[in-house]
Design a protein around this nucleic acid. Structure first.
Length: 654
RNA sequence: GCGCCCGUAGCUCAGUUGGAUAGAGCGGCAGCCUCCGGAGCUGUAGGUCGGGAGUUCGAAUCUCUCCGGGCGCACCA
C-alpha cells in the first residue's frame, strides 16, 4: 500500500515535468517527511532542478504544487522551507482501506521472482556444542527464511553438515588417543543428556594436547584419511559422534523455533563423487588449470577473484587459489564449488535422501544418503541461493561465485548471495565472569573472538537456560496465581523473544560484543517490550469483552476522525502499520533483518504512547472509542505478524 | 603489503537511495499506579558524527588522505 502510493506520486511528478518542461526524469527520489504533521512524503527535487531550469527551488516547488493536479490517494501538496514539496495522503481513505486489508492479513509485498529459493544457515561443525556465534547465524538465517516466505517465496532451508573435516577428526582423536574409548563406550556417552557439552571440553583438550607435542598432529592426519576413505571403525566412530552432536544442535535450534528441510552432508558429497563431476566441467571450461612451476607446482589452480594478469603475463602465485593439491586431493573450496553446482542443478548428480527426523508440528527433515528412499521431495535445482556465513569466509565464497561465472553461469552467479554478518565476540568483562584467564593484552581489548577450538565462548543452551530462568523468576513474581506449567511456557516465550530480538536489532556489519547484562535485558529496546505491547492491546479487548480477532472497524466516520486537523499520533500508527510490507521488501533486498526489528520496536513504542494518551474503554464518545479500538486491533495484529516473522510468539500474559 | 568491515551521547547501537532542529535503549537526575497491569509512561542533562581536505544549493552519508580498532589473504576447513 505504502509502496503503491509512492509509485503513484512518482508517476504524477514525472508526468508534470514531462508535460510542463518536456523533461524526462529517470529517477525521482522520494523521502519521508521529517514529521507526519508535514505530510507523509517529501520531495527535494526542486533543489536539484534549480540549475537545469534556471529557477529558484521555491519557485519550482510552487509550480509543482499548483500544476500537479489530482493524484489518487493524495489530499494535498505544500511547499515547505526553501523548496521542499510535502505530500499529504488522503488519510481517511487510506485508513478505511487499511482496516480491511490488514485485518485480512494481505498487504502485498513486491511480486516474488519465479523459481525456488535456497537458504543455507547454521552449518555448525558437528563436534562440539553450539555457542552464541552460531546463534547469531541461525537466528539471522531463520528470520531471513521467514521474511522470504512472508513475501510469498518458496524456500528450502538447508543446514550443511561437515561430518568428515578436521574438527570432527579432532574429537575422534580425543576419544581414541586421550580417553582410549571404544565405539561401544562412546555409544553410551552419546545417550547422556548433553553429549555436545562433553565434546566441547574434549575438543578444547585435544587442541592443548596437540600444542604440547606437535608430532601428535600425525594422528589427526590418520583419522582424517580414514574418514574420507569410509567403511572402517574410525569412520563409524565419527559417524556416531557427529550424528549425536548434530541431533543436539537440532534440539538447541528447536528451542528457538528453528527448523530445517534438508541436511546435506560432506560424506555424501565425497562418496557420491560430486567433485569428480565438477572437476571435469571445471577443466573443460578452463576455469582450472594445471600449474607446472613455482610454489603451486603440481596443483590445479584457479584465478583468485579480482586478480587480473597483465597481457602476456602469467598469474603470480599469490593470484592463484589452489583447488586440487599436488597429492591429488581436493580442498574445501573445490567441494564447495561442486556443492553449489548441485544447488543450482548444474552438476548432473544428486544426493540420495532419507528421513532424518519429524518435528512436533509434523514437518519432515531430510538428510543426504548414499542410497536413499525412492519417494522424496525435490531439493536443489533452485533459482537463487543465500548462504548465511560470517564475514570471515567472504574470500572462499567469492571464489565459488567466480567459478560459476567462469563456467558461464552468469545468472546463477548473480543470484548467489553471501549473506555475510560479523562475528559475536565476548567482552573482557564477560570472559572474566565466565572464569576465563585473560592475558594483559586481551584485557585491554574491546572484545575477544570466541573459539570452539579453545573452548572459549558462551554455549547456546547455557544462555537459553539462563534467559528462561530469569524470565521464569519474573513471571513467578508477577503471576503467582497462574499454574506453573503455564508460567514456564510464558517464560520460555519471553526468553526466546529477548534472545532473537537481541540478535536481530544489531545490523549485520557490526560485531556483537556479547555481554550478559544486555543479552538478559527485558526492558527498553528488547523483544519483551514488543511482546508486552501486544499483550496490553489484547488485554484491552479482553476487559472490554471483545474478541480482537473478530473486531471490525464499523460505523466510523474516517474523515471526521482522521481528516483535517485530527490527531496526528493516531494517524501515525496507521501509517506505520501500512509500511510493514515495504520494510519487508527492503529487508530482503538488502539482506538486513535489523530494519524489521527496528520497525517492530518503533511501532510498539508508538503504541505505548497512544496507550497512555488515550484511555480506550472509558471513552464516552462511541465513535471515538470505535476508532481507538480499530487502531488497537490493527496494531495488535500487525505487531503479532511482524514478531512471527522474527520467530517470536506472544505470551498469553506478561 | 593487499582486500573487506568498524569508529556517532558516559555505555551499547540506529540513522534506508546525500535533504529540513543528528535519534533510540541502557545508565544518571526529577517525576507518574483510587483510572485498559509500571517488563510501562513523562521530563531533563549529555554529541567537534575519529582528524583534515574536496565534491554539492546541502555531507554522519559520496571522493581522497591520515589516525585508531577488528577480520581475512594456507597444498586448513
Amino acid at each position: 500500500m505504502y509502496r503503491h502510493l509512492e509509485q503513484q506520486l512518482r508517476a504524477a511528478v514525472r508526468d508534470f515535468f514531462q508535460r510542463t518542461y518536456g523533461l524526462d526524469l529517470p529517477q525521482i527520489v522520494i523521502n519521508q517527511a521529517p514529521n507526519v504533521e508535514f505530510g507523509e512524503y517529501a520531495l527535494s527535487l526542486a533543489f536539484e532542478l534549480a540549475k537545469t531550469l534556471r529557477k529558484a527551488p521555491h519557485k519550482i516547488a510552487e509550480e509543482v504544487v499548483a500544476g500537479i493536479g489530482a493524484v489518487p490517494g493524495f489530499a494535498k501538496f505544500e511547499v515547505a522551507g526553501a523548496g521542499y514539496i510535502n505530500a499529504r495522503l488522503n488519510r481517511a481513505e487510506l485508513a478505511a482501506a487499511l482496516a480491511v486489508t490488514l485485518a485480512a492479513g494481505k498487504d502485498a509485498t513486491a511480486a516474488p521472482p519465479s523459481g525456488k529459493t535456497l537458504v543455507e544457515h547454521t552449518s555448525i561443525n558437528p563436534n562440539k556444542a553450539a555457542h552464541v556465534g552460531h546463534l547469531r547465524n541461525a537466528i539471522l538465517g531463520d528470520t531471513f527464511v521467514r521474511l522470504l516466505r512472508f513475501a510469498g517465496r518458496e524456500v528450502d532451508v538447508q543446514n550443511y553438515i561437515d561430518n568428515t573435516g578436521v574438527q570432527v577428526a579432532d574429537v575422534v582423536v580425543g576419544f581414541l588417543h586421550i580417553e582410549g574409548k571404544c565405539l561401544a563406550e562412546i555409544e553410551v556417552l552419546t545417550r547422556a543428556p548433553r553429549f555436545d557439552y562433553y565434546c566441547w571440553d574434549l575438543y578444547a583438550q585435544v587442541s592443548r594436547w596437540y600444542a604440547e607435542d606437535k608430532a601428535r598432529l600425525q594422528m589427526r592426519g590418520q583419522v582424517l584419511h580414514a574418514l574420507e576413505e569410509g567403511g572402517n571403525d574410525t569412520a563409524a566412530m565419527a559417524e556416531l559422534i557427529s550424528t549425536a552432536v548434530l541431533r543436539r544442535h537440532l534440539e538447541t535450534m528447536e528451542r528457538l523455533d528453528i527448523e530445517y528441510d534438508f541436511l546435506p552432508r560432506e560424506s555424501e558429497i565425497l562418496h557420491l563423487h560430486f567433485w569428480d563431476a565438477a572437476f571435469a566441467k571445471l577443466k573443460e571450461g578452463k576455469v582450472l588449470f594445471f600449474e607446472e612451476q613455482g610454489k603451486n607446482q603440481g596443483c590445479w589452480v584457479m584465478k583468485r577473484a579480482g586478480a587480473e594478469a597483465a597481457a602476456n603475463e602469467e598469474l603470480t602465485d599469490e593470484d592463484q587459489k589452489v583447488i586440487v593439491r599436488s597429492n591429488g586431493t581436493v580442498g574445501y573450496v573445490g567441494k564447495d564449488i561442486a556443492y553449489h553446482m548441485w544447488k543450482f542443478g548444474l552438476l548432473g548428480r544428486d544426493f540420495g535422501y532419507r528421513r532424518f527426523l519429524v518435528y512436533p508440528n509434523s514437518h519432515q527433515c531430510w538428510m543426504s544418503a548414499l542410497t536413499g528412499e525412492t519417494e522424496h521431495p525435490h531439493f536443489g535445482d533452485v533459482s537463487e541461493i543465500y548462504n548465511v556465513i560470517d564475514a570471515r569466509q567472504s574470500d572462499p565464497q567469492t571464489t565459488v561465485i567466480e567459478a560459476l561465472r567462469g563456467l558461464g553461469y552468469q545468472a546463477q552467479a548473480d543470484h548467489y548471495t553471501h549473506f555475510s554478518y560479523e562475528m559475536v565476540a565476548l567482552t573482557p568483562r564477560c570472559a572474566a565472569e565466565l572464569g576465563y584467564e585473560l592475558s594483559e593484552k586481551d584485557k585491554q581489548r574491546a572484545y575477544i573472538e570466541v573459539s570452539g577450538r579453545k573452548g572459549f565462548g558462551v554455549k547456546a543452551d547455557d544462555l537459553l537456560d539462563t534467559l528462561i530462568a530469569n524470565a521464569k523468576q519474573e513471571v513467578d513474581s508477577r503471576h503467582p496465581e497462574t499454574p506453573d506449567e503455564e508460567r514456564a511456557a510464558v517464560a520460555s516465550q519471553i526468553a526466546i523473544g529477548a534472545l532473537r530480538y537481541f540478535m536481530l536489532k544489531v545490523t549485520k556489519s557490526s560485531v556483537i560484543a556479547f555481554d550478559f547484562k544486555e543479552a538478559l535485558a527485558f526492558e527498553g529496546e528488547t523483544g519483551p517490550y514488543v511482546q508486552y505491547a501486544v499483550v496490553r492491546a489484547t488485554n484491552i479487548f479482553r476487559k472490554g469483552g471483545f474478541d480482537p480477532d473478530q473486531f471490525r472497524a464499523e460505523n466510523i466516520d474516517w474523515e471526521k476522525q482522521l481528516g483535517g486537523d485530527a490527531d496526528n499520533d493516531i494517524w501515525d500508527l496507521w501509517l506505520t502499520a501500512a509500511k510493514t510490507s515495504y520494510i519487508v521488501d527492503q529487508c530482503i533486498a538488502t539482506t538486513e533483518p535489523a530494519y524489521l526489528a527496528k520497525h517492530a520496536f518503533q511501532m510498539a513504542q508508538k503504541f505505548s504512547y497512544f496507550y497512555h494518551r488515550h484511555p480506550i474503554l472509558s471513552e464516552t464518545d462511541e465513535e471515538k472509542k470505535a476508532l481507538l479500538l480499530a487502531t488497537t486491533a490493527v496494531i495488535r495484529r500487525e505487531l503479532t505478524r511482524i514478531l512471527a516473522v522474527m520467530g517470536i510468539t506472544v505470551p498469553a500474559v506478561m
